[in-house]
């Protein structure tokens, strides 16, 4: 196994008396696709927020590509190559889909200083080309000139993830990419996202509640409970674990779930 792209040691976060996360130690090799499961309040989003710098950990360290990024502001971390998408898509509603993507592509390509931001045009050849490529890659090119405010939920999610990818991250954290999406659309959406990310060779951590999606798309599954990781292994190992089934996923009724979908 090559050197891990992300390694986390003894990570914890307390809010006053409440412990939101504790004792998280793990490492992720490059280009792995990791599913993160756990009930609400188990610490998944806290974990993501700490890695992306939105929250400052109370204790522990985070290393990204061998560099210590613990407690850096989110902007710095984004600049170093970690992007994220959001449970509720964070897009620019009064811009068109293309303008959204172009803004994302331009910010990430502009020189990282004030003067650079002042003389580099937003719609440079490179950023326009990158935006067009990403629209194709995420299969939303036909919404190119639609105002983002008017997009259906699934397309918003794709745009959100696409904008995160525009920064050419090496590690991408997806916070519930399929939340708010109908069951019929979930698989299609994940298919598009995962093939796009594979195309870009991006390491992925995604939080997901639907166990079938996790089983289908993750190479490895982390199970969160009570603020920490209680299981870490292949999907069949983790999801097959009886403990996990009782605490998080519920017993696997494959046939029943499948039948329900056909109704």
């Amino acid at each position: 196994m090559n050197a891990p792209i992300l390694s986390v040691r003894d990570l914890g976060k307390r809010f006053g008396a409440m412990t939101a996360a504790r004792d998280i130690t793990l490492s992720v090799p490059a280009q792995q696709t990791v599913g993160v499961i756990g009930s609400n309040g188990a610490g998944k989003t806290t974990f993501i927020n700490m890695i992306t710098g939105h929250l400052r950990p109370t204790n522990g360290t985070i290393h990204f590509e061998q560099r210590d990024i613990t407690g850096l502001p989110s902007r710095r971390i984004t600049g170093m190559g970690i992007s994220r998408s959001f449970q509720v898509a964070q897009i620019f509603p009064s811009l068109t889909v293309f303008e959204n993507m172009c803004a994302a592509a331009a910010v990430c390509r502009a020189p990282k200083n004030l003067l650079g931001h002042l003389y580099t045009p937003l719609r440079s050849k490179e950023s326009v080309a990158e935006a067009e490529t990403l629209l194709e890659l995420f299969e939303i090119a036909r919404y190119r000139d639609t105002l983002a405010a008017n997009l259906p939920q699934g397309i918003r999610k794709l745009l959100d993830i696409g904008m995160a990818v525009a920064g050419s991250p090496r590690l991408l954290l997806l916070d519930e990419p399929t939340s708010g999406i109908s069951i019929e659309e979930k698989f299609g959406l994940m298919q598009v996202v995962m093939s796009a990310l594979r195309n870009r060779k991006i390491t992925v951590l995604f939080v997901e509640h639907d166990m079938e999606i996790v089983e289908r798309f993750a190479e490895r599954v982390l199970a969160f409970y009570d603020g920490t990781v209680i299981a870490d292994g292949t999907p069949s190992e983790t999801l097959g674990d009886e403990r996990i089934q009782t605490l998080i996923s519920g017993p696997r009724l494959k046939g029943a779930a499948g039948a329900a979908r056909h109704v």
């Binding site: 989110s74 902007r75 897009i91 509603p93 910010v107 990430c108 525009a166 920064g167």
Partner: peptide, 13 residues
């Protein structure tokens, strides 16, 4: 104006 969170997470202050 639309969404400061997204701008920050694009790496811009």
């Amino acid at each position: 104006r639309d969404n400061e969170i997204r701008v920050e997470f694009l790496g811009m202050s």
